[in-house]
Amino acid sequence: MHMSDQDILVLFRQNEIKKGVKGVYAFYPPIRKMVVANSGNKLDAEDLFQEVLVVLMDKVKQESFELKSALSTYLYAIARNLWLKELRSRGKVVAVELEEERIEIEDALDLETEKHYSIAEKALKQLGEKCQQLLVLFYYHRMSFDLIAKKLEFRNDKVAKNQKYRCLEKAKSNFSLLNAN
């Protein structure tokens, strides 16, 4: 069925991620094309698209949010901005064409918060795969320790709970180390 831009926004506002992603998946190819044409690979493109949707989800939940262009254009513009940022952080000289036609998307986050997020991201990435999984299951999916223990093959819920605190403490100490630097 044909979904309008507004339908899609509503889905994201209501955390209907699966349906929402289906609605915007058609916008993915041009973004992938842009990434691949600018020193990225398909994995980067996928990651970027996910990042874009996370931004979109944050934005649609803000009361002041108003879509001023076609959703496809809007997402593409966010993708360009994020990709530019990523390229810069990789120390790449950014192609002129990518830079020039940038559409200004007001940043949802102030610099300080954004810095915190990127530190948090690094702090979490420094953890083991299992630790990350555990924390996401707990904090995002709000899964019970019982279920987490089954899913991640811990002996019981107590072990899972214990592990969760260890992982979080480790993340915190990573965070404060990174923050200090």
Partner: peptide
């Protein structure tokens, strides 16, 4: 602040995971 940023980041990671899965 640290813990809040971490929790928020975990939420984003969760969302990203779900998006990736859907993709």
């Amino acid at each position: 602040d640290a813990q809040k940023a971490l929790t928020e980041q975990l939420r984003r990671m969760g969302i990203k995971g779900e998006i990736a899965q859907t993709m």
